[in-house]
């Protein structure tokens, strides 16, 4: 099945020096970065809670999720992704572009794949994009 997957519209964004992509259909909107209210006890990659026009939204830090050593995102943008009826914010350094990307099966041994968050890789003109599975990411965090 993964090999047969057609090119999908993908939102490209940058966390630290790496380019990631996610299915544009899961993205509701993009807002400028804002500080979150810390949620005691939550994993470090949960930045906390933000106010989205009166709704409380949990914000995750993708960089910290993939690499605990990475410094938290403190500027940039928040991608608001939908997962079922829930909305989750994902802090990223920069939102770049929307492109049609062909997904390829991921090479074995990638550490991120082990976390079950990476769906595959895509090729850009000037490099590789790691395709993130938003739904897997969210369901690992929210109960």
């Amino acid at each position: 099945m993964p090999e047969a997957r057609a090119a999908a519209r993908t939102l490209l964004f940058r966390v630290a020096e790496r380019v990631f992509g996610c299915d544009i259909d899961a993205v509701r909107e993009i807002i400028p970065y804002r500080r979150a209210t810390r949620l005691p006890g939550a994993p470090t990659y949960v930045q906390g809670l933000i106010n989205l026009r009166g709704t409380i939204v949990t914000m995750l830090d993708l960089g910290a999720r993939l690499d605990a050593e990475r410094a938290p995102v403190r500027d940039g943008s928040i991608i608001l992704a939908t997962h079922g009826t829930r909305v989750v914010g994902i802090a990223v350094d920069e939102v770049m572009d929307v492109q049609m990307i062909n997904e390829e099966a991921i090479a074995a041994g990638e550490g991120e794949a082990a976390r079950g968050l990476v769906r595959g890789l895509g090729h850009l003109d000037d490099g590789v994009v790691v395709l993130v599975d938003i739904h897997a990411l969210v369901s690992q965090v929210l109960l």
Binding site: P43, R86, V88, L142
Partner: peptide
């Protein structure tokens, strides 16, 4: 009072 999604490991405080 607004509810928010329950987050893994967060305090039930």
């Amino acid at each position: 009072v607004k509810q928010f999604d329950a987050v893994r490991d967060a305090r039930t405080l």
